[in-house]
Amino acid sequence: MASPVLEVRNLTKTFGDFTAVNGISFALQPGEILGVLGPNGAGKTTTMHMLLGLITPTSGTISMFGMDLETHREAILQQVNFSSTYMSMPQSLTVEENLWVVARLYGLPDVQRKIDDIVKKLEMGEFRQKVTRKLSSGQMTRLTLAKAFLTEPKILFLDEPTASLDPDIAHKIRALLKDEQRASGLSVLYTSHNMREMEEMSDRIIFLQKGNLVAEGTAAQIVSRFGQTDLEDVFLKLARES
């Protein structure tokens, strides 16, 4: 088995008396899509922020591509990217200007071709010259996804990436993710509250509850372990317990 591209060991984050993430450990294999499930306040976003170097862990280690995030931040972040339905991008810039800034930030070669490609893949042609503040929420989500795909990351962190998209575009995004996974061996850490999507997309799932990792395995293994009929029932059971 290949070495994991991401390895998290005993990761903990406390804010004063509150423990947001409590000693979780997991790994992401090359080319794997790992779903992260959990009710609100379970620690999913805090974990993702720690993986992106935006929050310093209280204890534990995060390593990607065999390097420690704390000591090799620049080299690691060059190879990862993220997108979230809840994030924003500079509102006064056009879609294309925003993508140019991202391309420069990551020092990409052949920028125009890459922007043209991603604009085509995500069907953004009709609004590429539009000022970002005038985008609909679905268009905004596509822009944040374009920003994430543009840099050709080896690991992609996606926080509810299809939450504000219509079913057609959401389907295309899922297909694009699967294509990238097959073509370039992209590894993805994926959160969603859409259980069907989670079952369809994820090779494995980890389930967080009150900052603890309470279950790990394929969707079928998790459903079976909790004696429920599907992932949604597992989610409801754990969410109501928390």
């Binding site: 170097g53 931040r73 924003s88 500079p90 990551y106």
Partner: peptide, 14 residues
């Protein structure tokens, strides 16, 4: 104002 700090500091930018 544009809530862009996350994008910047989750990139390799120092």
């Amino acid at each position: 104002w544009s809530r862009n700090l996350m994008n910047l500091f989750a990139s390799p930018l120092k």
